[in-house]
């Protein structure tokens, strides 16, 4: 009992990482917002909270998959922007939607193969992908605008967004905690974190294939987030995903996922996403300037990263 409690508090000796503390802080923050901030209780605001959280949750889930294997994807924000740009092309939804996912899958595949087969560092591979995609997006859609297929608009309207939330959580749970794939991601990441890269493959785990799959899923999640965002803002926007890389990494890290790999949990990521959303929502209601919000977000990431000590120096 005491051991379990200590584990919750420190996140040590647990594969789920330190999620209890952020949960507590998040709950306290939520209570404070409920009592202390006037506009917060408003049902409309609470529904807004959900729709604000969904894109970050989707991107965060994908980001978490690659972080679990000790990687990082800096191209997710560009994938989101690219997706909205593709959806704003003047074509029927049944053409655009499959295109979006095909493109996202291909992006993830290239990232994954470059990392596992061509031995390119994940940061470099996904960073260059980010730049390339930004270029492609600007060609497709130089400035925000365009028309989004009706089906996309309808699927995100009003209460339907709750369905997206449920689906995201279910798929995330299935991938991370409800499948062999998820367990194998933990195994691969555990080996990487312990500086024994090939341990999982010794047990017969197809490590390269699973890592590639993690990057493909990561891009795909980002594409789903792009579809959702396009539906919400009813147009394409080449800059909509601009800070999502950092935001998603921050959210995942807040939830206790170790950036070295092998430690993390779905509920941790959800907590991280909710905290980020509450923070943004609360600060918006309190008329805190967007610039100060950026400063606060950056500081949170800095503190979390500094708290996660590692053996290795550098990247």
């Amino acid at each position: 009992m005491i051991v379990t409690f200590r584990r919750l508090l420190t996140g040590q000796d647990s594969r789920q990482g330190l999620w209890f503390l952020p949960l507590t802080i998040g709950c306290l923050g939520f209570l404070w917002l409920l009592i202390g901030v006037d506009g917060f209780r408003n049902p409309q605001n609470l529904l807004n909270l959900i729709t604000q959280a969904i894109p970050l949750l989707l991107v965060g889930l994908g980001q978490m998959l690659v972080i679990l294997v000790g990687g990082l994807d800096l191209s997710v924000g560009s994938v989101v922007s690219l997706t909205t740009a593709i959806l704003a092309l003047d074509a029927p939804g049944y053409v655009l939607l499959p295109t979006v996912f095909l493109v996202a899958g291909l992006i993830g595949l290239i990232n994954g193969l470059a990392i596992t087969r061509l031995n390119v560092h994940p940061i470099i591979a996904t960073l260059s992908m980010q730049i390339i995609l930004r270029g492609i997006t600007l060609i497709l859609l130089p400035t925000a605008g365009g028309v989004i297929p009706e089906i996309v608009k309808q699927s995100v309207s009003g209460r339907l967004s709750v369905l997206w939330l449920a689906a995201a959580v279910f798929v995330g749970w299935k991938l991370i905690h409800g499948s062999r794939f998820g367990l194998h991601l933990f195994a691969i990441g555990g080996g990487v974190a312990a500086d024994r890269q090939d341990t999982a493959s010794k047990y017969g785990v197809a490590d390269r294939r699973n890592v590639v799959l993690a990057y493909v899923l990561c891009s795909t999640f980002a594409a789903v987030a792009g579809v959702f965002l396009a539906g919400r803002i009813v147009s394409g926007d080449p800059n909509v995903g601009l800070l999502l890389e950092i935001d998603s990494i921050t959210a995942v890290a807040i939830g206790g996922t170790q950036l070295t790999g092998g430690v993390g949990s779905l509920h941790g990521t959800i907590i991280g996403v909710v905290m980020m959303t509450l923070l943004a929502n609360g600060m918006n209601l309190g008329n805190v300037s967007a610039f100060v919000q950026t400063i606060i977000k950056g500081s949170i990431l800095l503190v979390i990263v500094a708290l996660q000590s590692r053996k290795k120096i550098g990247l």
Partner: peptide, 23 residues
């Protein structure tokens, strides 16, 4: 692997799966 349980280490790579695909 330090981050897996005893059972998971014992059956890694050959985990039994339920009908729904869960470990």
């Amino acid at each position: 692997l330090p981050n897996l349980s005893i059972a998971e280490n014992m059956y890694l790579g050959k985990e039994p799966v339920t009908k729904l695909g869960r470990v």
